[in-house]
Write a protein that binds this DNA or RNA. Sequence first.
RNA 1: GGCCUUGUGGUCAAGCGGUUAAGACGGCGCCCUCUCACGGCGCAAUCCCGGGUUCGAUUCCCGGCAAGGUCACCA
Length: 543
Amino acid sequence: MNYKLLAERLLPGEYPDPAFYEEKYPARDLPKGAEVTRLAPSPTGFIHLGNLFSATADERLAHCSGGVLYLRIEDTDLKRKVDGAVEAVIKALKYFDIKFDEGAQIGGDETYAPWYQRQRAEMYRAFAKKLIEEGRAYPCFCTEEDLAALREEQTKNKEITGYYGKYAKCRDLTEEEIYKNLDAGKPFVIRLKSLGNPENKFKFHDEIKGDVTVTENDQDVVILKSDGIPTYHFAHAIDDHFMRTTLVIRGEEWLASLPIHIELFHVLGFPLPRYGHHCSLMKQDGETRRKLSKRKDPELALEFYRKEGYFPRAVKVYMLTLLNSNFEEWYLKNPDADLNEFPFKAAKMSRSGALFDLDKLNDISKNELSKLSEGEMAAFLEKWGAEFGTESQKAYFADEEKLLRVLTLCMGVGGKKRRKDFTTASQAMQFIKFFFERPAEHEAYRVTDGDRRAILAGFLRRYDEMDDAQVWFSKVKEIAAENGFAAEMKDYKANPEAYKGSVSDVAEVLRIATTGRANTPDLYTIMQILGDAETRARIQAEI
RNA sequence: GGCCUUGUGGUCAAGCGGUUAAGACGGCGCCCUCUCACGGCGCAAUCCCGGGUUCGAUUCCCGGCAAGGUCACCA
């Protein structure tokens, strides 16, 4: 068979030879040990926590080693394309501190562009043509029906499904048959002519999983689809070679196709990059657990976390906690360090899939938020509010001086102990709501109506905005005593039957009357912030 | 079903031949306290199962079992 002629018929025209591309995309000039990693999403625009998990690993591995992180778009499947998707992905990741050095829509060094696979079509064809010329790839005219029938037969016979060995019908087509099909205008794909033997197994070192057992590939996989666009496998080999990726970090669902990739790199004459297959973030689904999915877990979309107002650093801390088992310990010792100083290692990545734990994230969020100054918190809330806040919430930012006082109180700034009430921005806004809006609803009072009125009226009679906290509280005690409540907690505990309740019950009445709730930070300070008129008005309304 | 991967408390996990089997989250209890939050103290809860190897296995070997992944002209 004249492969040269066949190649020309299949992919007519002049294509550059491999040397041209090797020169066009030269090896990167980076320090020793620097990793080049990449994120290569398909442009569906949807991106969830699992993607961030993976992206964080890519980003850390690249930047901890003085290397490069780039963004490549795998748009070889037209059915998946969504407009504006790339921008959406970049924006979502940027919020969580994932910054690309180069890539689609990024700018930066254009040496390795283009970053969209559809724009690299010529290169893929050039290498496919070369493979055909070498007799290592061939046209296949099998239809979808043919393949379905084949699969059915193999399944019935309990054989491995796929296009391989004796089942690879088109592999053995004669020259005459091929040209006959071509003349008849039959559509075709280009398949790899695999030389592997599945009997052969060997060890392969995975940067995350350690040594894994790999079986030689014998599948004649499609490398060029009938529309001339490469499959993932083929594009992966060519792109990661010419973009000079050193470390391919991807989900473990790719481990099964590693043999294909190894053969492809080999047949193309490219050195193999190193690989790290990470486990997927799992979600409990009834009795079992499964990896995060786009269709089933919309609530795990990155957008959800932005909308709820999770603090970016908190999410990053959680990702690092899951990603590197020694991170948590390091962070405990270096609570104020730049997260990027943590020595991130692929080998420290977990080998088993972790369940996503919202409780843990929330705990981290509280801690991170509590470290902010009131000014930083105000800035964070304002930024969140501008995009996701209601109109009434946006109004909180008009009186900045008041907002800062509120935040100082609610965060315990200046005190020996910081408060940790806020998990997210949206929750914080709910928490501080009563400072800016009169409570529409009040939690139930636990004293009788008569006592409530007496307590509130007694307070109004005594309240003086100029009192300091001690004087203020002594007045609350007076009211307690006056109405049959114990002024001192010790007295109440010693003899609970003698009283209707204690100062705490009296304070609770005042608290509910002014804020609508039974649980708040220091009431005295709240009244100071609200001001005399507002405090009195709220209490009067509850008498 | 074949192949690959994984199996330490409810969750994330350290440990890698001898440990009272770390720590964090969550749960529960107590203390602090005008409530809440914070903080402090404490409690419950774990080595998938069965065989070996060994004086001794959570750690090593073999076999089960379970879970996850994968078997496309999708990535």
